[in-house]
Amino acid sequence: METQQKRQSLRTSGMSSLVTSQLREMIESGELPPGEKINEREFCEKFDISKTPLREALKVLVAEGLVSHRQFVGYRVTSIDLEELRSVFEMLHALEEFAGSLIASRIKPAELAEIEALHQRMLDYHDAGDKKNYFRTNQAIHAKLIDTAGNPVLASVYNNLMSKVYRARGTANIGQSRWDQSLGEHEEIIASLSGKSGTPLPNVMRRHSENTAKEVLEFLKKHNKAARVIQ
């Protein structure tokens, strides 16, 4: 009897871990936007599970700050603090610019080839209209650029700040015009890296960061206003 209970506990624990990962990805990608109420019955049906592993998963996400819980109200995806986000973006602009100055003098041919390959993959996702994989590849390019700067302290600070804006960038439903503009900015980054552009890499990277921040902040400001009206 005791062994059976342990097995059941392990099955529940493993299930809740999978559900946690799935819900976290849905929140960070924007599939579950800020302020969205989490209907437990719907998600139990969606994942074909009982309430126990779902609630265990939700407890983890509450601890991570991605979900809030109020008695008699239930679970809801937490909102994003725009003022904090704006401050984080300001720091990222400076780090992108600084990284650009290091990358320009330190990048190796093999690293450039890897970045160019990622860029081509991102182009393919853009042409296919696949925003989800485009966004993931975009993130991989930025991570590789920062690694190429060869400064572990910079990488640590940058990655910590990026973790704070990842959900905001995934949530923002970027329109086609900004998507195309962003792709053009990445083309400029590649051109600057390969010496085919007269614009210094630090300038290109900072401008790209600033334009992204502007689009994300404007979207979230409108989203928050709409959410308040609905509530």
Rank of each mutant, 00 (worst) to 15 (best):
Q22E: 04
W179C: 06
H126S: 11
K51Y: 15
F98I: 12
Y134E: 10
G100S: 06
I103Q: 09
N159V: 07
I107D: 01
L112T: 13
Y166I: 04
I49Q: 14
K225P: 01
L10P: 05
D124F: 11
P109W: 03
T212V: 13
H186G: 05
I141Y: 09
S13A: 15
S68Q: 06
V216N: 00
L82Q: 12
M122D: 09
K164Y: 00
K59V: 12
S101M: 09
D147S: 14
L102T: 02
E96R: 12
K46N: 07
V229Y: 00
M91G: 15
G195N: 05
E45G: 06
Y166L: 05
I189F: 06
E45C: 03
P33M: 02
D130L: 07
V216K: 00
K59C: 04
R41T: 15
L102M: 04
Y134A: 06
L145I: 05
F98V: 13
E45K: 15
T137N: 05
P202W: 06
F72S: 15
L118H: 10
T20D: 04
Y125W: 13
G100V: 06
E25Q: 02
S182P: 01
A168H: 00
I190R: 03
A117H: 13
K131Y: 11
I38F: 03
G195K: 05
S105C: 00
T199K: 14
T199M: 12
F43Y: 15
K131W: 09
G74M: 07
Q22W: 03
I174E: 08
S182D: 09
H93I: 06
A94S: 14
Q4H: 11
E114N: 14
L85M: 07
I80N: 00
E2C: 09
S9H: 15
I230Y: 01
A155C: 10
S17R: 09
L61S: 00
A57C: 13
R178Q: 13
Y75A: 11
E64K: 10
R178S: 11
T171Y: 04
C44D: 01
E42P: 04
L66H: 00
V88R: 05
L220Q: 01
I230F: 01
S29W: 00
S16I: 08
S16Y: 08
V62Y: 11
S79L: 05
